[in-house]
Design a protein around this nucleic acid. Structure first.
Length: 424
RNA sequence: GGAGAGUUGGCUGAGUGGUCGAAAGCGCACGCCUGGAAAGUGUGUGUACGGCAACGUACCGAGGGUUCGAAUCCCUCACUCUCCGCCA
């Protein structure tokens, strides 16, 4: 949610900002609604004021034992009029809320113009691409050949875009998760946390998935309305919803492993092969809650923390700055990390690290008390995948394969694999 | 799942129909006191919206209702605690 004051004080700035995103915003429609809001609110408040003073007068007259009937007659019609005004006001406000909560975050000045992922800007590359003196296989061939991956079984148990991992490959995914959690909590200063995987609608509104992206979510129950989390970002960031955090407790840094559930109704036909795009996948998420002045640096740090995992696994990757058209709804600036997949001969997204500035915090009412003015102010929120474990598993399979289709275990994972060096 | 008790400001906690946005205390801010500090003491201290301002309006878990008037009465819901049942 953007700041309503910004809309009132500098509408042109907002219009320009949304134009960069190519977001269709109708300022006339907004201004007309806002003008109505103001008029009806003023009228409502005048009526309320009248009611309050009349009621007070009746109370005082009664206390003195005077006849209150004339006063009662005077306010006889006020009730209906007030009720009508209040109803109209709440309708206008609901309309404004709906409009405002559908408007995306403004982009950071450093975000490049652009339409889609083709316009993203490469910032850096790390690692040497592995050279193979044999025909490389992708993770599907590697996995199914040894019955480590079973897509048909996933389809039988549930449906398409679900998979079963067997034996040492399932263990390898668990090892990756453990390794990521340990690295972030022990070396990068994040607090490990375990959270609910079902969340309510308020939490999803807080981080921006609702009301706009309901189609991407699996709804688990009606009344109460619970949803499966699309990412641990939702429950973890909502830790600070409706909170005023002490200045001394900032920054808050959380790391959390969770399964993620995505319906992505619009994504059918993309990445149909393999486990690139599944309805259920494992991810380790890192989240930071920081003072506003610290968020730019925190974004760089958080991205570096995600990169550290790839480096320790010795997986080649590149860091992309997303262009205006590819940056997510709630984000002001996003770096994607793309890992090298020999089986696809391409870099593929494995982490997305975003600075939301106060966009989520405003929806969440997540604040801190700034000692300089003693007033509560919105915090800034950031998060990133550190990393998507399912895709990391694919990357390890494809980068660490040998001519016999075996998968070698990266050195940092050996302690988590009970000494196993190769998956035969 | 059943029965009972609760939910008030940053925190604790009073308040059962009218000068209650809400006592008191804690915390915090500023001042006095002090060589400095502690203690003591004085003043101030919620959020949001409208207004240049004075000020007005809303908010006492959420949503409805009764009333000229609701933190206070009624209804629905959520959550917390205690006891019983069931359960990994």
């Amino acid at each position: 949610m953007l700041d309503v004051q910004l809309f009132r004080n500098d509408l042109d700035f907002v219009i320009a900002g949304l134009k960069k995103r190519n977001f269709a915003f109708n300022p006339e429609n907004y201004s007309e609604l806002e003008a109505r809001r103001k008029a009806v609110q003023t009228k409502t408040q005048e009526l309320q004021s009248e009611r309050n003073s009349s009621s007070k007068a009746i109370g005082q007259a009664k206390a003195k034992g005077e006849d209150v009937q004339p006063l009662l007659d005077k306010v006889a019609n006020l009730g209906d009029e007030l009720k009508a005004a209040e109803t109209e006001l709440s309708e206008i406000q609901a309309e404004l809320d709906a409009l405002m909560s559908g408007i995306p975050n403004l982009l950071d000045v450093s975000v490049p113009e652009g339409k889609d992922e083709d316009d993203n800007v490469e910032i850096s590359r790390w690692g040497d691409l592995p050279k193979f003196d044999f025909e490389v296989k992708d993770h599907v061939d590697l996995g199914t050949a040894r019955n480590l991956l079973d897509f048909e079984l996933g389809a039988k148990i549930t449906g398409s875009r679900f998979v079963v991992l067997n034996g040492q490959l399932a263990r390898l995914q668990r090892a990756l998760i453990q390794f990521m959690l340990d690295t972030h909590s022990c070396e990068n200063g994040y607090q490990e946390t375990y959270v609910p995987y079902l969340v309510n609608a308020d939490s999803l509104r807080g981080t921006g998935q609702l009301p706009k992206f309901a189609a991407d979510l699996f709804k688990a129950s009606e009344n109460p309305d619970y949803y499966l989390i699309p990412t641990a970002e939702v429950p973890v960031t909502n830790i600070v919803r409706d909170m005023i955090v002490d200045a001394k407790d900032l920054p808050l840094k959380f790391v959390c492993h969770s399964p993620c559930f995505r319906s992505e109704a619009g994504a059918y036909g993309r990445d149909v092969r393999g486990m690139i795009r599944q309805h259920q996948f494992e991810k380790v998420e890192i989240v930071q809650i920081v003072k506003p002045e610290d968020s730019v640096q925190a974004h760089e740090d958080l991205t570096a923390h995600a990169e550290m995992i790839l480096q320790k696994l010795n997986l080649p990757y590149r860091k992309m700055l997303l262009c205006a058209g590819d940056t997510g709804f709630s984000s002001s600036k996003t770096y994607d990390l793309e890992v090298w997949l020999p089986g696809q001969n391409a870099y593929r997204e494995i982490s997305s690290c975003s600075n939301f500035r106060d966009f989520q915090a405003r929806r969440l009412q997540a604040r801190w008390r700034n000692p300089e003015m003693g007033k509560p102010e919105l915090v800034h929120t950031l998060n990133g995948s550190g990393l998507a474990a399912g895709r990391t598993l694919i990357a390890v399979m494809e980068n660490y394969q040998d001519a016999d289709g075996r998968i070698h275990i990266p050195e940092v994972l050996l302690p988590y694999m009970g000494g196993l060096k190769v998956i035969e």
